[in-house]
Design a protein around this nucleic acid. Structure first.
Lengths: 138, 138
DNA sequence: CTAGACCCTTGATGTAGGTCTAGAGTCAAC
DNA sequence: GTTGACTCTAGACCTACATCAAGGGTCTAG
């Protein structure tokens, strides 16, 4: 699972599909532990780091912030009770995403209505889009 | 429409529902023209500025970036052909919002599935959420 | 006339998540 | 043994949209 081949940061970056700078950034941010070093100072990783980076990427794809990813990583290492926290975080993220979708749908509906009503030519005073933006309301 | 009462920046800010700093920021960014000044250097506005600020706020509420708002303001002043540009920008924004909604819906569906499958207790290896994040695939 | 509210400028700060630069040292292949 | 690719650090920079601070001048009501 975590084979003991020593990888350079460049190889890890390539395997995980992230930039080298991103790996160092995650290390500073506490998402990755400080790795072993060669005498020269070069970082040495094993394939577990690649897996961890993929975990981070997938969590980010699911809309988690790095702060939340940090929590998920801690929870995933907690053999007792961690799963409950993971589910909670995921449910919270789900709700946040649903709220965001609802908000965007409202915006979309308003905008769609205006675009449909606008003929695309004529005087600015007759453009429903501009009229809506200029309206004294709200 | 644009009555000639001289307003201070503070009054404009209050009427339009924005912060004073925001007005100065918009001025720097070219969203508001440079206003007249009193001999003391105080900015002087009329109610047209309040209307313009409300225009900006509503456009932002519709998801336009300030860059796009700048364009909309320019187009709204273009008596010939401006309306076509306005409609184009609005349609483009609409498409972008729809794409964003679709993307978020995909994320939501993936996340909802995981949350439903997770019992909320047990060992980390059995948690579908953690398994999905740890999976070697893409 | 004075206290307190208001306004001025320049420039720094904040978020989130990186990305890039400069200058220097290291590694591996030929 | 040298060339070219790789890595190191510290710290600046990026987007987008403001927001705040410091230090100082102005306005107005009582």
């Amino acid at each position: 699972m975590t084979t003991q081949t020593a990888l350079t940061i460049g190889r890890v970056a390539q395997s995980a599909g992230v930039a080298i700078d991103t790996i160092r950034f995650y290390e500073r941010e506490g998402l990755l532990p400080e790795p072993r070093r060669r005498p020269s100072g070069y970082r040495e990783y094993d394939s577990g780091t690649v897996a961890r980076l993929r975990f981070i990427r997938r969590a980010k794809d699911l809309g988690f912030t790095l702060e939340e990813v940090r929590e998920l990583l801690a929870l995933s290492a907690d053999r007792h009770g961690g799963v409950e926290g993971v589910r909670e975080r995921a449910a919270a993220r789900l709700h946040a995403i649903e709220a965001r979708i609802a908000e965007l749908q409202r915006v979309r509906d308003g905008l769609a209505e205006l675009v449909e009503a606008c003929p695309g030519h004529g005087a600015p005073e007759d453009c429903p889009i501009l009229k809506a933006l200029a309206e004294p309301g709200a």
